[in-house]
């Protein structure tokens, strides 16, 4: 009976000695963003038991992929509520994966919102209301995603685009584009932000837009048609003295005809 007792003693000793090592290992891996935080309790109720066991066993990414596929299937069925809840599940399983936040907000702010806007079975007032609600939902999803990934340029860009194209809030769009610029160091987003400020209803923002665009104008590479066009409009709106305005004959940068292309 001596040996089994020794075995038990070693097992327990090992068990106690390993606790600090495990704790340190977990802490380090979490800091290195290699381990995700434990799943929230509420989420476990949404997952099937199997899915929960699997996500516990290091298959969280796979389970997320599956719920994502299910969401795609529900999209084909035009079941927006289900799409939303499945993508919410997906993002909670892998909040560090930007693509999921991006897709979830796109589904709501674009697909669902437009679907309701053009649904002729609904009253016009209801359509507008549903459109707004889903755009707001898309924005909320991105904001939530940005809490986990504040440095993800892609999410800031999607947010800016929704403000710009879906909810028409140019000041907010400008702010988001400035974040993209900060993170990507790509001057295009600096210009985008300025275009949005130029569209604001607040005249005090026009001056700021003008200053930003003149800064871009310094570099001949950035003199896109949109840049020159916006500067000229702002010069008119702000009554800039003629000598200070840009020349009319500035050679335009050769660009393809696409309006919303990357050379805006």
């Amino acid at each position: 009976m001596k040996r089994p007792l020794q075995a038990l003693a070693v097992l327990l000793g090992l068990g106690i000695a390993k606790l600090p090592l495990e704790q340190a290992c977990t802490q380090h891996l979490r800091q290195a963003k290699l381990l995700s935080a434990p799943l929230a309790l509420g989420l476990r109720e949404n997952l099937s038991q199997m899915g929960f066991a699997a996500s516990l066993g290091g298959l969280r990414s796979l389970v997320a992929s599956i719920t994502y596929l299910q969401a795609y299937h529900e999209w084909e069925n035009v079941n927006w509520a289900k799409v939303d809840s499945l993508l919410q599940l997906t993002t909670s399983l892998q909040p560090g994966y930007a693509n999921y936040w991006d897709d979830a907000s796109w589904q709501m702010a674009y697909n669902a919102a437009s679907h309701y806007l053009y649904d002729e079975k609904l009253q016009p007032l209801v359509r507008g209301k549903l459109y707004e609600e889903h755009v707001r939902r898309g924005i909320a999803i991105l904001k939530e995603g940005l809490r986990y990934l504040p440095d993800e340029a892609r999410l800031w860009n999607s947010l800016a685009e929704i403000y710009e194209r879906r909810s028409h809030q140019p000041e907010l769009a400008a702010e988001a584009y400035l974040q993209v610029h900060r993170l990507s160091q790509n001057n295009r987003y600096w210009r985008f932000a300025a275009y949005q400020l130029a569209q604001s209803a607040k005249p005090e923002l026009w001056q700021r837009a003008y200053t930003m665009l003149r800064e871009s104008y310094q570099s001949p590479k950035q003199r896109t048609p949109s840049l020159i066009d916006t500067i000229k409009k702002l010069e008119a709106k702000l009554n800039i003295p003629f000598p200070q305005r840009i020349p009319d004959t500035t050679p335009l940068m050769q660009i393809p005809a696409t309006e919303a292309g990357p050379t805006r």
């Binding site: 390993k18 495990e22 891996l29 290699l34 381990l35 995700s36 290091g58 969280r60």
Partner: peptide
């Protein structure tokens, strides 16, 4: 044992 300490593949 802490099996979760090796679950880095997701990330």
């Amino acid at each position: 044992p802490d099996m979760g300490a090796f679950d880095i593949v997701d990330n």
